[in-house]
């Protein structure tokens, strides 16, 4: 019954995976006890794959990728089980110099708030050139040429002017484009996009998503796309993982998961969307709240809110098992009908 995620969801390419996280458990010690932020998280991002990580605030999406790039504050967290491989290397075995070589060159992160990710006192051009020269042995002029080219790729009409500007002189959408340019500037194998468009308007968001998608497809870059917005993930990602309270609850090809979700949580999440119901009709909310991760309940973490739960769900946390075309962590998966389908959702 137990099937490793990687066996079902073998990435199609022959190249080694960009990121493999195997059974990672991670906690943050506090005076009140340890907050179990991640529990047995297994994720594989293949070469040239675009993968979504979906879930509500506090479910551990960002912690997962920040652990992989070792961006969590050192000494404030404990890895209690599992391993991480970033292009076959263990980030926890690297020293600071190695890490800095890896970040930006092999893997880049695009953060949600572009203003706080850019240095406010340095012109855009200098910041871009600095990143390029940190990782590539090129002359200043060469680096500037690369920077201009990549800004042009981001549909920035006057790269010269933007490079002379300070971050505060640009709009939010423009700043985010600069950050994407910076992330792609050293041709990394993996881009981690952590809610890159949440602070932006839909019109700007569509442009930003297109820019990320087109460039990633063209250069064969893998992308981990973190979002709470299922609609955005459905438009962008080949595959997705649904997270709840620090665990993966369902994963598989985007269409398979969203057309026939098996986990009650994924189903409920889709039913909450106003897109699917008659105007003014009652929306289905998920009763209760997420469990306290200082003292999580026994068994399945979703059990206290789950209409399908029985004694088995109490006894033991469910492990990942196959469902049609994808995998799901639910004891009741055989009795639960995939009650909502994307085809219904389009009514």
């Amino acid at each position: 019954m137990m099937v490793a995620a990687s066996e079902i969801l073998k990435p199609t390419g022959q190249k080694p995976a960009a990121l493999t996280i195997d059974g990672l458990s991670l906690e943050f010690p506090t005076y009140a006890g340890a907050i179990k932020a991640l529990d047995d998280v297994t994720i594989e991002i293949g070469a040239s794959e675009i993968v979504g990580l979906v879930g509500e605030s506090g479910c551990g999406k960002s912690v997962t990728t920040m652990a992989a790039t070792r961006l969590l504050p050192e000494g404030r967290y404990r890895v209690t089980a599992g391993s991480i491989r970033l292009f076959g290397r263990d980030p926890f075995a690297m020293d600071e110099t190695e890490l800095q070589d890896v970040r930006g060159k092999l893997v880049s992160t695009i953060f949600q708030e572009p203003m706080s990710a850019l240095n406010p006192t340095i012109r855009i051009g200098r910041q871009l050139v600095g990143v390029i020269q940190r990782h590539e042995a090129v002359s200043e002029a060469e680096a500037e040429r690369t920077a201009r080219g990549i800004l042009k790729d981001m549909l920035i009409a006057e790269p010269e002017r933007i490079m002379r500007a300070y971050p505060f002189e640009l709009s939010g959408g423009m700043r985010q484009r600069v950050l994407i340019a910076m992330a792609f500037s050293c041709n990394p194998g993996l881009i981690i996009a952590d809610e890159p468009t949440t602070a932006l308007d839909v019109t700007v968001q569509a442009v930003i998503l297109r820019l990320i998608l087109d460039r990633a497809k063209r250069t064969g870059t893998s992308v981990v796309f973190i979002s709470h917005n299922i609609a955005v993930v459905s438009q962008l990602c080949d595959r997705l993982y649904v997270m709840y309270a620090g665990r993966i609850v369902e994963s598989g090809p985007t269409r398979a998961v969203l057309e026939a979700p098996q986990h009650p949580y994924t189903q409920a999440l889709l039913r909450c969307l106003p897109e699917r119901v008659e105007p003014k009709a009652e929306l289905e909310a998920i009763p209760g709240t997420v469990p306290n991760l200082l003292d999580p309940p026994p068994g399945c973490f979703y059990r206290p809110r789950c209409p399908e739960a029985n004694d088995q769900c109490f006894a033991k946390p469910p492990s990942m098992a196959p469902a049609p075309d994808h995998i799901v962590a639910c004891w009741r998966r055989e009795t639960i009908q995939p009650s909502i389908k994307a085809s219904e959702a389009t009514q």
Binding site: L155, S171, G173, M174, V202, T203, Q205, A206, V207, L209, R210, L211, L213, D214, N229, I230, A231, V232, S234, Q235, L236, L258, L270, L273, E275, A342, A345, T346
Partner: peptide, 24 residues
Amino acid sequence: RTLLATVPSLKHPLPELAATRVGE
């Protein structure tokens, strides 16, 4: 029309760049 075309939805794929280039 442009605004609605760019709204993320489960119903349609991501619009092409040509449809989203609305400028600032």
